[in-house]
């Protein structure tokens, strides 16, 4: 069996593996010890009752059955999904549009790029304060003035009404985060070879066709990244909701509650870490499914 060829092949394979592992090790060891470990523990916690101090008590799937009978959790799940379905594609389109716009040779490009990134880095308090001024539920708010005087419709109560609160949160987060994803797209655009555009131009392609047949396909790895990161961050939305829709004593009510807010509430208000972990595990599974679907899509273009 052990012909010299297979043995050397196997040896080479092993060498290859070792080299690869050596690349991964510095990051992976830190990651595994300090992040992956606690996460695995958190998933074990989902099947226990634990307050962070007293001994853990295994309760099987009780945490999960309780979750799905708790209407704060089911509302959170529903709101998070609705939020993500709208926010992911809209942010992606805005970010790509901005990146293409700001990748052109325009004057004061640095200025415009920085400005676009700004709401992402500015203090959330400031950004939310400005937003609340524009989208104030009173008739004096700028958007309501616009609605009444230009569109002749009734003023909206925005974040103060159960009908429009999610809309307000979605608009806000697109505005705040599109600059972030624009940066990723900008970096991605730099990887596209000028030759491809030249070749397309020779074939008589117009601006739209260049975009359709060169830019978009070349940006696939970036889009994969952006889609996954966006999906994950949308499912993890938390502080925006708290800032915009926190009511009495900061409690977010069922119309706007999201998953991570629920996790926070269970973990640090009620100290039910088991139940919090169970909610996080549900979130994890949803995101994992979405990621796996994306992953399947990615295989098609992998350049081997």
């Amino acid at each position: 069996m052990n012909t010299p060829i297979t043995r050397s092949a196997r040896k080479r394979k092993m060498r290859q593996n070792l080299v690869a592992y050596s690349f991964i090790a510095p990051n992976f060891i830190g990651f595994a010890v300090f992040t992956l470990g606690p996460i695995i523990l958190a998933f074990i916690m989902a099947f226990t009752e634990w307050d962070g101090n007293n001994p853990m008590k295994f309760v099987g799937v009780d945490n999960f059955t309780n979750l799905f009978t708790n209407d704060r959790f089911t509302s959170a799940l529903k709101n998070t999904i609705v939020y993500s379905i709208f926010t992911v594609p809209l942010t992606l389109i805005m970010a790509l549009g901005l990146a293409i716009l700001l990748n052109q040779k325009i004057k004061a490009r640095t200025f415009f790029r920085t400005v676009t990134f700004f709401p992402y880095v500015a203090s959330l308090v400031a950004v939310a304060a400005v937003w609340n001024m524009l989208f104030s539920p009173s008739k004096g708010g700028l958007m309501n003035q616009l609605l009444m005087n230009v569109f002749h419709t009734d003023p909206l109560k925005w974040a103060a009404s159960p009908k429009t609160v999610m809309l307000t949160i979605i608009l806000f987060s697109i505005w705040k985060n599109m600059g972030y994803y624009m940066v990723i797209y900008l970096a991605g655009l730099q990887g596209i070879s000028e030759d491809l555009y030249e070749a397309a131009a020779l074939d008589g392609a117009g601006a739209f066709q260049k975009f359709r047949y060169v830019t978009l396909p070349q940006l696939k790895p970036t889009t994969f990244f952006v889609t996954i990161m966006l999906t994950i961050s949308c499912f993890k939305i938390y502080d925006i909701v708290y800032m915009l829709a926190g009511g009495s004593n900061g409690v977010v009510n069922k119309n706007a509650i999201v998953l991570v807010y629920y996790v926070y509430e269970e973990a640090f208000r009620n100290w039910k870490l088991g139940s919090a972990s169970a909610a996080a595990l549900v979130l994890f599974v949803i995101v994992l499914i979405v990621t796996l679907i994306q992953f399947r899509g990615e295989k098609n273009y992998a350049n081997d």
Binding site: A128, A129, N132, M133, P137, S138, W158, A160, L244, G246
Partner: peptide, 8 residues
């Protein structure tokens, strides 16, 4: 209340 809440 609604204004107070959003205005902070």
């Amino acid at each position: 209340y609604a204004t107070l809440k959003t205005q902070g």
